[in-house]
């Protein structure tokens, strides 16, 4: 094998193995950093891990939003109309946050409460976060959404 061909072969091998290692590391980083999605029912059944960052989607249950009068602390229930999850959050809620609207919260379960680090509200009238739809579909309660309301 002449030196030129040898160099090319080495470069190609180097590139392929470099890319391979990189992709491997990337996949590892991915597996460490993804946020799994859970429905309120799954959380109520204890299927969600505590201490790990997860996402929960559903509707903000009517009449459950409590604000602390002194600070930006707020608590509300996220529901899939089967089960509710109590969410606490400190910070500014998004412009589209409202009772009865779809919401996705990201955070950790901490002694029975969901402590949110981020609250994402749905973006416009015609768009519902896919997670919310998924949660409502899984609970089969899209049709009964008004059922609990007085």
């Amino acid at each position: 094998m002449n030196p030129k061909r040898k160099q090319r072969l080495l470069i190609i091998l180097g590139l392929v193995s470099g890319l391979g290692i990189a992709v491997g590391l990337v996949m590892y980083a991915l597996s460490q950093n993804i946020n799994l999605f859970f429905t309120p029912t799954q959380i109520a059944k204890g299927e969600a891990p505590s201490a790990q960052m997860i996402r929960v989607g559903g509707m903000v249950a009517d009449g459950t939003v409590d604000r602390d009068p002194q600070s930006l602390k707020v608590a509300f229930d996220v529901t899939d109309f089967d089960h509710n999850v109590r969410v606490t959050y400190e910070g500014i809620l998004p412009d589209l946050f409202r009772e009865g609207q779809g919401v996705v919260v990201q955070g950790r379960i901490h002694s029975g409460q969901f402590v949110a680090s981020e609250v994402l509200a749905k973006h416009d009238e015609n768009y519902m976060p896919p997670e919310v739809t998924e949660a409502l579909r899984q609970s089969g309660k899209l049709d009964q959404m008004m059922g609990g309301q007085k």
């Binding site: 992709v23 990337v26 460490q32 993804i34 999605f37 997670e131």
Partner: peptide, 28 residues
């Protein structure tokens, strides 16, 4: 480029193989 692409498509890939809904955030 490949890692940004993978991170962006990963939720789709997981969903396509029936792994449920996941999201990949800024930490990755």
């Amino acid at each position: 480029a490949v890692s940004v692409l993978l991170g962006t498509l990963y939720p789709l890939l997981v969903d396509a193989v029936g792994g449920g809904k996941v999201s990949v955030g800024p930490p990755f």
